[in-house]
Amino acid sequence: MPELPATSWAVLGLLSHGRELSGYDVKKWADRSLGLFYWSPSFSQVYSELKRLENRGYATSRLVAPETGTRDKRVYHITGEGLAAVRTWARTAPLDPPVLKHGPMLRLWLGHLLEPERMREILAAHREYAEGMRRRAEADVADAGADEAWAYPRLTLAWAERYYTAERDLADAMLADIEELESAESERAEPEGEQSWH
């Protein structure tokens, strides 16, 4: 199997649905699917990956006249060799375990250095982010429609919706945990305060 970065395989995977896609289309499709659970490429990454795939013989491109505007646009199509390569990669490449880098949890881990109100702000912001991503995934599932080519991508979008629902609910649970911790600390502090008055 050729040595290609995961981003190359992801872009080739977007082409594997059999449609001709422009770089703009690839970026849009990546944002609306891959961006919910893996990575959202920049335009420069998309175009460099498309060029790499074309140089490898995994994709071909052609210029098409625009329906509107003045410039031709380049569209890409997967080759038979590219389809075989991405199928082999999907079947046999070792799986990278998910890497969790959870910024809000790192901040809460340092909660002894923060004011309780700041911890609540961090969790509230994370909850808002998770709910926004959940709504985005929900809308993308609906937009994927009944297109058979998107059956499995639609499953990953549904997974993303459930994942961000869980993140939102975990933020709510952490807010409740902080309240409980503060209440316990307050109760422990009261007897000490009472003793100091005697």
Score class of each variant (00 low, 15 high):
135 R>D: 11
96 D>F: 05
90 A>T: 05
8 S>P: 00
137 A>T: 10
21 L>Y: 13
134 R>T: 04
101 K>P: 01
192 E>P: 01
144 A>L: 07
189 A>G: 07
159 W>L: 14
82 G>R: 09
92 T>Q: 06
145 G>R: 10
132 G>A: 13
122 I>H: 06
136 R>K: 11
110 L>P: 11
158 A>F: 09
134 R>L: 10
138 E>D: 09
59 A>Y: 07
80 G>D: 08
36 L>A: 10
66 P>C: 07
67 E>I: 04
131 E>L: 08
5 P>N: 07
107 R>V: 11
47 Y>P: 00
153 P>S: 02
188 R>Q: 14
74 R>D: 03
102 H>E: 07
61 S>N: 11
124 A>P: 00
27 K>C: 01
173 A>K: 13
28 K>T: 15
154 R>G: 01
86 V>K: 00
92 T>K: 07
160 A>H: 07
121 E>Y: 02
60 T>K: 13
121 E>C: 03
191 P>N: 10
88 T>L: 12
51 K>P: 03
79 T>A: 14
95 L>A: 10
108 L>D: 01
51 K>W: 08
176 A>P: 09
8 S>T: 02
112 H>V: 12
180 E>I: 00
198 H>G: 13
17 H>F: 08
23 G>N: 02
117 E>R: 15
170 L>A: 15
118 R>M: 13
87 R>W: 00
73 K>I: 12
54 E>F: 13
11 V>Q: 04
68 T>A: 08
162 R>T: 06
31 D>Q: 14
170 L>Y: 12
38 Y>I: 05
185 E>I: 01
4 L>P: 00
32 R>G: 02
180 E>T: 04
166 A>L: 07
73 K>V: 09
97 P>T: 10
15 L>F: 05
87 R>F: 00
197 W>T: 06
117 E>I: 08
158 A>Q: 14
33 S>T: 05
8 S>G: 03
59 A>L: 05
135 R>W: 12
27 K>A: 06
74 R>A: 05
61 S>W: 07
198 H>A: 11
188 R>D: 15
13 G>S: 08
29 W>H: 11
